[in-house]
């Protein structure tokens, strides 16, 4: 394609740039507006129109969102839920991915079939029994209910990623270790799992983003426990009671989105590899 574009007239190249810059502006502008509104006074948000620069940055908006509106609490809850979910997901998908990818045993095909089928189950279909079950287990009053529900639904892709990777490792690895007297557990934890570092990175990144952004489960789990709300649930509650506080809304949204955007810029590579791999496989 690059050789082709060289022979194209300069007009086409310029047109392409203009179109792409305009498109990217549309894609990025809402975030610029958000940060700008979070630093304006509530009156300025209306009066200054499209001018993104505030007269004086109003940091008080952030203090209001962080303190009074409870976003420090929501942030802590979100961190706890996200990290817990990542740990549980990596643990259980690595174990099952390993045996599904590398061993033949009675029932393997059935399990793979069931995991594949769960890919098309809509989330709305499972939420009522999930709440009912979690409440029956007495887990509705803490973070662990949210963590287990998030870690137990929609993880087939991670399992298949691990299975595919373990399948591709050379046979000799296990045979040599087995000859040296290493058992099943030892082989997995000391040889196979360390080799699967790239998959663990991808699964960690994808799960981190999914858990941070999760909404339905944290929403219905925290109806009776506002102190357990995560950031998106807290956001909905905030605008429900402070609909006219535009700059407070913007500060709260900026606080909620910043960690995940920063995280993404650091780990972009794993993320893009992970989702691109899903299509090729």
């Amino acid at each position: 394609m690059s050789t082709m574009s060289l022979r194209r007239p300069a007009g086409w190249t310029i047109l392409r740039y203009v179109a792409l810059v305009a498109l990217c502006l549309v894609w990025v502008y809402p975030f610029l507006w958000l940060v700008s509104a979070s630093l304006k006074s509530p009156l300025e948000v209306f009066s200054k129109g499209l001018n993104l620069l505030p007269d004086v940055p109003v940091w008080e908006n952030y203090a209001r969102a962080w303190g009074q509106a409870g976003f420090s609490r929501y942030m802590l809850n979100t961190f706890f839920v996200t990290i817990g979910t990542v740990v549980v997901v990596v643990f259980h998908t690595a174990l099952s991915g390993y045996v599904l990818g590398r061993h033949d045993f009675v029932g393997r095909k059935v399990i793979i079939g069931i995991l594949g089928a769960t890919l098309v189950v809509p989330a709305g279909l499972t939420v009522i029994p999930i709440v009912d079950l979690t409440s029956a287990l007495g887990l509705l009053n803490g973070h662990w209910g949210i963590i287990l529900a998030l870690a137990g639904s929609g993880q087939s892709a991670a399992i298949l990623l691990y299975a595919g990777y373990f399948r591709g490792l050379p046979r000799e690895l296990e045979e040599a270790a087995f000859m040296d007297g290493a058992g099943f557990l030892r082989i997995f934890f000391y040889i196979m799992l360390p080799l699967a570092g790239p998959v663990t990175a991808t699964v960690t990144v994808l799960t981190f983003l999914a858990a941070w952004n999760a909404f339905l489960i944290p929403l219905v789990f925290t109806f009776g426990t506002p102190e357990l709300r995560t950031l998106p649930v807290g956001m909905l509650a905030f605008v429900g009671t402070n609909e006219t506080d535009w700059s407070g809304m913007a500060a709260a949204a900026t606080i909620s989105l910043l960690p995940v955007i920063v995280f993404f810029f650091f780990v972009q590579r794993y993320f893009v590899e992970g989702i691109a791999g899903a299509v090729k496989a």
Partner: peptide
């Protein structure tokens, strides 16, 4: 064969428990 592969089933246990409780049971219960 199942007995010889017992570690394999131990490894599957966490996934089967979680997916069973939070995906398969909910579909049936719904």
């Amino acid at each position: 064969r199942i007995w010889a592969d017992r570690w394999i089933y131990v490894f599957l246990l966490p996934t089967l428990t979680l997916v069973g409780a939070f995906t398969i049971y909910p579909v049936v219960a719904s």
